[in-house]
């Protein structure tokens, strides 16, 4: 038996909007730790890891570890039927081939339940080793989204370079080139407006902008984004989900042949 009650149901709606275009089908894993997901895109270039910790739910009952295969597009269709202020409860019985999403309006005058068919998904769970990164950049998530969108109108790839001068995003295309440099800036009114650069050593990597733009669909989940870079590792683009966990996107770099 599984019953997870999330008062801030909009979080789950936002999570689905953030990942449904990157991943078609995925297993949601439920354990004492929380509600999690790990999935790759169909071309095995990017990986998304989601964790919503059990403590973040108002009620969290998960009698035994359960993996539920869902089509994310269908799940998104169902969650779009929940109001932004609704409380969302996810329910499943042991051995059932369906999951139920229950939506309660804040004043309890409307209760809806949507039952969705589960699917068997052969997914490969990958071990992600703990790593020391050469550079970690924290910046406003809206700023990062803006840069990725702007650069993708010029080119297909972005070179992200971190030096002591700051973090530089560069692209080139048929019509020309573009460079955006963000310097460390901690003299701001609100902490989420800061750009903080922790650099162990300079690093420069190239990535497909199509994926970066897809990751920025998580922008509504967090005011800040953390970008971790190392020359021999995929980039990590992390959006923290307040008091609940995170959504992390890993993207393999492009390399010179």
């Amino acid at each position: 038996m599984l019953e997870l009650r999330l008062v801030q149901g909009s979080l789950l709606k936002k999570v689905l909007e953030a990942i449904k275009d990157l991943v078609n089908d995925a297993n949601f894993d439920c354990s004492a730790t929380g509600f999690s997901l790990q999935a790759m895109d169909s071309s095995h270039v990017a990986l998304v890891a989601l964790l919503l910790r059990s403590e973040g739910f108002e009620h969290y009952r998960c009698d035994r570890n359960l993996s539920m295969g869902m089509n994310l597009n269908n799940m998104s269709k169902m969650l779009k039927c929940a109001g932004n202020d609704d409380i969302i409860t996810i329910k499943a019985d042991d051995g059932s081939d369906t999951v139920t999403f229950m939506f309660e309006s804040p004043n309890q005058d409307k209760i809806a339940d949507f039952e969705m068919k589960l699917m068997d998904i052969d997914s490969e769970h990958l071990g992600i080793p703990e790593a020391e990164y050469q550079a970690i950049v924290r910046m406003p998530s809206s700023e990062f989204a803006r840069i990725c969108k702007d650069l993708s109108s010029i080119g297909d790839t972005v070179v992200i370079s971190v030096t002591k001068e700051g973090v530089k995003f560069s692209t080139r295309g048929d019509i020309g080139t573009a460079n955006v440099v963000c310097r460390q800036n901690t003299t701001v009114d609100k902490p989420e407006e800061a750009t903080v650069i922790e650099m162990q050593e300079p690093v420069s990597l190239t990535f497909a902008l199509r994926y970066m733009n897809s990751f920025t669909k998580a922008t509504p989940l967090s005011g800040t984004v953390t970008i971790s870079l190392s020359s021999d590792l995929p980039i990590v683009v992390e959006y923290k989900i307040a008091e609940m966990g995170y959504i992390r996107f890993y993207l393999a770099p492009k390399i010179e042949d």
């Binding site: 790759m40 095995h44 270039v45 990017a46 990986l47 490969e124 769970h125 990958l126 071990g127 992600i128 080793p129 790839t157 190239t206 497909a208 590792l233 995929p234 890993y250 993207l251 393999a252 770099p253 492009k254 390399i255 010179e256 042949d257």
Partner: peptide
């Protein structure tokens, strides 16, 4: 010419 690496070349199946 640039080549796109796969995520599977960095992370092992567990």
């Amino acid at each position: 010419m640039q080549r796109q690496k796969s995520i599977l070349s960095f992370f092992q199946k567990s």
